[in-house]
Deep mutational scan, measured.
Amino acid sequence: KVILLEDVKGLGKKGDVVEVKDGYARNFLIPQGLAVEATKGNLKEL
């Protein structure tokens, strides 16, 4: 699961917690600054 930092077409809006494949999160969303891993600490910051 990841928390979206920006609106991502076809996935969700900023602040949404979405389930995506590990590779998509690690190789695209997180490096592009579009999402962060949905850890307990990150979820509390919402």
Rank of each mutant, 00 (worst) to 15 (best):
F28N: 09
K1R: 15
N42F: 06
A35G: 07
L5S: 04
D7S: 09
K9D: 10
G15E: 02
E37S: 05
K40P: 15
G15K: 03
G33C: 05
N27I: 09
E19S: 09
K13T: 10
L11N: 01
L4W: 00
L29A: 01
L34D: 02
L43F: 04
V20S: 02
D22W: 10
T39Y: 09
L29Q: 00
G12A: 03
K14P: 04
I3L: 14
T39A: 05
K21E: 15
A38G: 09
K40S: 15
L11H: 03
N27W: 13
L46H: 14
V36D: 04
L46C: 04
G41D: 15
E6S: 15
L34H: 06
V8D: 00
G41K: 10
A35N: 01
V36P: 00
R26N: 15
K9P: 14
Q32R: 12
T39S: 09
D16H: 07
G41Q: 14
G15W: 14
A35I: 02
K9F: 09
K40Y: 15
I30Q: 03
F28W: 10
L11S: 03
Q32I: 08
L46N: 10
V18Q: 02
E37N: 07
G23T: 12
K44A: 15
L29T: 01
L34F: 11
D16T: 15
L46K: 02
D7A: 09
K1D: 06
G12V: 00
V8N: 02
A35D: 01
E37K: 08
G33T: 03
K21V: 15
L11C: 06
V8S: 02
R26A: 13
G12P: 00
V2Y: 12
L34M: 12
K13Q: 11
L5T: 08
D16C: 11
L4C: 01
Q32S: 12
L5R: 07
L4S: 00
K21F: 13
T39E: 12
V17N: 06
A25L: 10
L46G: 07
D7Q: 07
F28E: 09
I3K: 06
K1F: 12
V17M: 06
E6V: 14
T39R: 04
D16P: 00
G10S: 07
D7N: 11
R26I: 13
L34V: 09
L11V: 12
G15C: 06
K1N: 10
K14F: 06
V20T: 05
E45N: 07
K44W: 13
L4V: 00
L29M: 04
P31I: 14
G15M: 05
L34I: 13
A25E: 04
L5I: 12
V2R: 00
T39V: 03
K44T: 15
L43K: 04
A35M: 01
R26G: 12
E37Y: 07
V18L: 12
K44E: 15
L29F: 02
V18T: 03
D22S: 13
L4I: 01
G10A: 07
I30P: 01
E45S: 03
A25G: 09
V17H: 08
V18M: 09
A38P: 06
G41C: 13
V36E: 08
G33Q: 11
D7H: 09
V20M: 04
G10I: 04
I3A: 04
L43Q: 04
G15L: 05
G15F: 12
A35S: 02
K13F: 10
G23L: 10
N42Y: 05
L5D: 01
V8Y: 06
L46Q: 10
K40C: 11
L29I: 02
N27L: 13
E6Q: 11
Q32E: 11
L5W: 03
V36M: 08
G23R: 12
P31C: 08
F28S: 05
K40M: 15
I30A: 02
V20Y: 02
L46V: 08
V36Y: 07
A35V: 05
Y24D: 12
L4K: 00
G12L: 00
L4E: 00
V2T: 02
P31D: 15
E19W: 15
N27Q: 11
K21N: 13
L34Q: 06
K13L: 10
V20K: 00
E45A: 04
N42P: 13
D7R: 07
G12Q: 00
E6G: 13
P31T: 15
G23F: 14
P31L: 14
L43G: 07
E19T: 13
D22F: 09
K9M: 12
I30G: 02
R26S: 15
K44M: 15
P31W: 14
N27C: 09
G15N: 09
I30F: 13
G33P: 01
N42T: 05
G12H: 00
L5V: 08
E45K: 03
G10Y: 09
E37A: 06
T39K: 08
I3C: 05
K14N: 04
D22P: 12
G12M: 00
V18F: 04
L43M: 06
Y24H: 08
V36N: 04
